[in-house]
Design a protein around this nucleic acid. Structure first.
Lengths: 339, 339
DNA sequence: CTGTTAGCGCCTTCAA
DNA sequence: TTGAAGGCGCTAACAG
């Protein structure tokens, strides 16, 4: 193995052709004799030669790289989304740069701090819940932009209908015969606020449609919020018979409180989440699947299409799917939490 | 906003200086009058100018990018690991490229298929369980390499002591007074095989040390394996009083079977996992924490040090930590699964 | 079908 | 302390 990686010149030398011929072969450009093509290919292989995207990008203006911007990397959702995006980009031979902006987001001008300009062909944001202002600033970097997990008119977006999702979930509980259906939502400083709002609205709409008054409890996000909220609900003078959580993590926290309190699910209380988190299956939690991998795949492919000039400002609404498990059932007719 | 992003020439023009001066300022190189430095800085800001890593890398030979190679992106573990790596690289102003090799791994020469050579300054592999052969091939790309989740002599590695982890976990169960302690392990085709083996060995060693014979059950990975294995254990003529699972996902599957069978945890059977998965907290599962975020951070910083010539071939063993929760307790003295 | 030429945007000599 | 010239590895026009 050479200490200095082979360059195109080395390949040209070894194959006995000129630089441009090598370039043509490696780019699958037409106009090279099959026999020569083979010879060059072999020379490149023997030298383990790989084109420097740095250098080619300098000429073509394309970097062969797409930047994905996420608020956080740890939550389950982002792993699945990235996985889909990665697969889509790989199909088009594009590399994926990942930026976790997390806390830095509050700082003014975070979008500028990222070395995006001239260093990336496109930007995909995942659940960034961007404001118009932020959108504009990101757009200033001058590369196409695809928003996943957010719908913004005039900008390519891949998203789910949160309202329809929670409305469907609520109707599922209503159809089972529940009338006292509570909702546990979350309020965080900056993230997911739009999605949070929409989910609550979907629940409220479905309740209103059934002529019932909504019963929302809003706590901090995460399972701790769920635990607290469920504690509050259990101490009501007439607890709900069904509870819908804004997302699975909250539902799982609520489930923990129920377990500790000795309240049986679904016998005494039906519990439902949203997201289809990995753990939801193990916990037999009824939930709404939103297939983040598929959304990622779609967002990635949309990005590729846009780069190829085949699409623009497309909006794609991804379907959600009710996953029925053991945590929801018809309400018992008798009163009280304990059978 | 200009349709063509500003180049160094534009900045030079606006500041009324030459290209090299701008370059010096932007690289914090010495030898520029403070007053000029300010003027250039301002001009750059006004034009939202960002240095093209493509172009600078062409000259310096450094790309400002580190590639992270993972088998999969979806499992919880990788999100946490990437998060740590990302934070560490960000500190050093390095970008993070992520490659999910997944299925393509079986294909010969997957390492070569990645456009690493000349396109990245270093490679970090996460839980890739690389063979010597694969290590060598990766090394051929000629950039430094850091292995996370794997210990290989002569190569920079960040890892945990899986053997010590499960040995400690087993001793915890033993110390509670259990003597019939089973182990649920997994066998998959390609991944994590070393870690799997070590975890089993740690369990076996602790059992041997206590003069007890090991009781391993090996199934497919994931919660399904746990469900099946626990079913098998429950149908033994004398079921175990404690079960250790190779990882939390398996433990959660086992827990599901127990719940369905009406066997109480920890009253009738103590259950323990490994990893400290998000869901483990909600499920009150006693487990072993391996802090993948910290490992990622360490691996990332090690990479930076190596790039700065400050480290080489370092081995870092990350600590594991027993997390006591409600799923383990002393065995009941009475016989039988149901109290 | 193949080779030659002129840059892409930047950094690094070197000279002023 | 500053500027001018050359070239990093590659592609895109051209010419042969």
């Amino acid at each position: 193995m050479p200490s200095q990686p082979a360059s195109m010149r080395d390949v040209a030398h070894r194959a006995g052709v000129s630089l441009s011929t090598v370039s043509r072969v490696l780019r699958d450009a037409p106009g090279v004799a099959p026999e020569v093509r083979q010879r060059v290919q072999r020379a490149a292989d023997e030298l383990s030669y790989v084109v420097s995207r740095n250098a080619s990008g300098l000429v073509t203006g394309r970097t062969g790289r797409v930047s994905v911007v996420v608020p956080f990397l740890r939550p389950w959702f982002f792993g699945a989304a990235l996985s889909g995006i990665s697969d889509a980009l790989r199909e088009a031979d594009l590399d994926m740069l990942v930026y976790q902006v997390g806390e830095t987001r509050s700082r003014e001008g975070w979008a500028r701090a990222l070395p995006l300009r001239r260093n990336t062909d496109a930007v995909v944001t995942v659940s960034m819940d961007l404001s118009e202002e932020e959108c504009r600033r990101l757009e200033d970097v001058g590369v196409p932009m695809v928003l996943m997990g957010q719908k913004v008119s005039g900008r390519a977006s891949v998203y789910i209908d949160d309202r329809a999702g929670t409305a469907g979930a609520t109707r599922h509980l209503l159809n089972l015969g529940h009338t006292r259906v509570a909702y546990i939502g979350s309020r965080s400083e900056a993230w997911y606020s739009t999605s949070s709002r929409h989910r609550l609205e979907g629940y409220e709409a479905a309740m209103a449609e059934a002529g019932l008054s909504p019963w929302p409890v809003v706590k901090a996000p995460g399972h701790t919020g769920g635990e607290l909220a469920m504690g509050e609900l259990l101490s009501d003078h007439e607890p709900p018979t069904a509870v819908l959580a804004e997302f699975d993590d909250i539902a799982l926290g609520a489930h923990r409180t129920l377990r500790r309190a000795g309240v049986r699910v679904p016998d005494s209380i039906s519990l439902m989440g949203f997201d289809n988190h990995d753990a939801a299956a193990v916990m037999d939690l009824t939930t709404v699947d939103q297939a983040p991998y598929d959304s990622g795949l779609t967002a990635g492919r949309l990005t590729v299409d846009i780069l190829n000039g085949a699409a623009r400002h497309t909006h794609v609404e991804m379907p959600t799917q009710l996953i029925l498990r053991q945590s929801t059932a018809a309400p018992r007719t008798t009163r009280g939490l304990f059978p």
